[in-house]
Amino acid sequence: MKNIYQYKLSHLTTEQIQELMKRYYNNEKNNLLIEEYNIDIRNSLLSKTFPLKEHKNTLCPFCNIPMFSYRESKSTYNWHKEEIFCKKCSHKHNVNFCDCLNCKKNKQILQEIQLQEEKLLNNKKIEIILATYIDESKKPIDLDILTIKDKLYISALLRTSLSEDLEYINPISSIKLKLAPTQKYKMNLISDLREKQFILFSPNTALDSIIVEDEEIVSYYPMNVTFKLNIDLEDYEENIQNLLHLNIIEDIDSELKIELWSEIALSECLEFLYAKMEEYNLPIDYIGDKTISALKESLKHFSTSQNFNFIWRTVKNAAAFYQKDKISKKHAVNTIAGGILRSCEKAKAENWEVKGYSRDYNYPQSIISEIFFDNILEIGDKGFTSVVG
């Protein structure tokens, strides 16, 4: 890299150049200096004509020779970060990105190494996934020991994302059907089935959906994995059909009935709560155990539909509180739990006739809710409009 303006001072002696530089940095006017020294240059480029500044202690990593920099202009003098470069290969020393030929070559070599490492890692992942699948598939599910909850979870997952050929359970993230009301519920459902090895990592799962350490799968992204149902190949299609279209013959005991109904109702209330908060531009990050506890208590006395009423009014009041009193959004969100609980307690104490809300068109009933209320309890919409129990 050469100083393309330095020739503009070729008619001056070394002493004259030194004097010019001294007067320049003493803030004499550029136009007067240019006129006096007869320099053919624009005012703003005068400092570019000065000899390059040598950095003897900074050697080019490629040429092993001292590097240089342009002289600072008066406007940047004493604070501007110098761009230090090699006159021979044009390498830049103190910049975020250098486009010299040597750096480009090094970057290309690094990219090739990274690609090779990624390829090796992917091959290792494929081996580990396959080995895990082969090992776990040796112990297929005994369908006779499945609980009603297990069957509900499996049925919902199969209905949502079973492949057309009945072979694989496609990633939930790629499916439009709604497995469960909230993301957390979906992830808990998948994690539960995976932990019990009712579903296995499919050999053709996306490699970036699992995390491997020390020759084993240590973590995974539940929504992005392709699974395979871990059942015996004998009577495979018949068993798949039975799980897809549940026909629960045995009676569900009251404790499990309340557990699953409460689980689904709470998730539906949270989905509605998040939707209303988004509508009123309130952050859902601050929703925690206090609000969940309030909803659980309210669901003991009022239906999911009626709780939608409490939620809508409470979120609306929280948003108005935020606007009117100029409080933080976090403070406004913290009033929601108390608002839901007060609505529930007042409605109970004064024997209100609480009007139920319909399902939001944008948030249809989930597959797990449909199966539980239609196939297992056989009560349909009463699961939404009746109190848990």
Rank of each mutant, 00 (worst) to 15 (best):
Y7R: 13
L9Q: 04
T13V: 10
E15H: 14
E15F: 14
E15V: 14
K22V: 08
N27S: 07
E28F: 07
N38L: 04
N43W: 00
N43D: 07
S44E: 10
S44N: 07
L46R: 00
F50Q: 04
P51Q: 08
L52T: 10
K53M: 11
T58W: 05
T58F: 10
L59N: 11
F62L: 07
W79N: 12
H80Q: 14
E82S: 12
V95N: 02
K105V: 07
N106S: 10
K125Y: 12
K125D: 04
I126P: 00
E127Q: 13
L130H: 10
L130I: 04
L130D: 07
A131S: 14
A131M: 06
K138A: 09
P140D: 01
I141F: 00
L143W: 00
L146M: 03
L146F: 05
T147R: 03
D150C: 09
A156H: 09
L157M: 14
L162T: 07
Y168A: 06
I169F: 00
S173D: 03
K176W: 03
L177K: 15
L179E: 02
T182I: 11
Q183P: 01
Y185H: 15
N188D: 15
E195T: 12
T205E: 02
I210V: 14
I217F: 06
I217G: 02
F227D: 00
K228P: 00
N230Y: 03
Y236S: 02
E237N: 10
L246M: 06
S262E: 11
L266S: 05
E268K: 13
E271P: 00
E271I: 01
L282I: 06
P283K: 10
P283I: 08
D285Y: 11
Y286K: 06
K290T: 11
T291N: 01
I292F: 02
L295E: 00
H301G: 02
Q306P: 06
N309V: 05
W312C: 09
K316L: 14
A320Y: 13
F321N: 08
Y322R: 08
K324P: 02
D325V: 04
I336R: 04
I336N: 02
I336E: 02
A337I: 05
A337S: 15
R342S: 14
C344K: 06
E345G: 03
W352H: 11
G356N: 08
S366Q: 10
S369W: 09
S369H: 13
F372W: 15
F373D: 07
I376V: 15
E378T: 14
D381F: 07
K382Y: 13
G383S: 04
G383F: 01
T385D: 03
S386N: 11
V387L: 01
G389W: 01
